[in-house]
Amino acid sequence: MSHETDTRDPGDLGPGFMDAAEVTVREGITRYVMGFVLASALTAASFYVLSTSLIWGPGIPVALVVLAIAQMGVHLVFFLHITTAPDNTNNVLALAFGVLIVALLIAGSLWIMDNLNQNMMSMPQMMQMQR
C-alpha cells in the first residue's frame, strides 16, 4: 500500500457526485432551466431544418440525426444526471453497453434488410419462375 500523502481535498468531489454538498433549490432549478432551454433550442432547430431550404435536401436526415444525438446528450446530462463522478461509473458503463446494443440492432437491421432487398428477385422474374 502506498504511503505517500494524499493531498486531495475531501470536499473536492466530481461534478454530480450524488453525495456531494447538497445542491440548493436555486441551483437545482437553474440546471433544469438550462436543460430545458437547450432541449427546446435543439427541438426548434430540428423543426427549422425540416422546413427550410437552407440545407441541401439529402443532407436533411443527417442534420436531424445529429440534432437528435445532441438532444439525447442534453437529456442525459441535464435531466437524467449522468455524470463522470465515481459513483456514476456503473451507469456510464451500462449506457455504453446499451448504445452498443442499439447501434448493432439498428445498423444491423438496416444493413441486412437492404442487402436482402437488393438481392431480391423483381416481381416479373418471380412470376416467370412460378410458371
Binding site: 445542491v23 433549490v25 437545482g28 433544469y32 432551466v33 430545458f36 427546446s40 441535464f78 435531466f79
Partner: peptide, 19 residues
C-alpha cells in the same frame, strides 16, 4: 413535442421540490 418537453421539465422541478 413541446408538451413532452415541458412535462419533462416540470418533472425535473418536482425532483428539486422533493429534494
Amino acid at each position: 413535442t413541446a408538451f413532452l418537453l415541458v412535462s419533462s421539465f416540470t418533472c425535473g422541478l418536482s425532483a428539486v421540490a422533493t429534494e
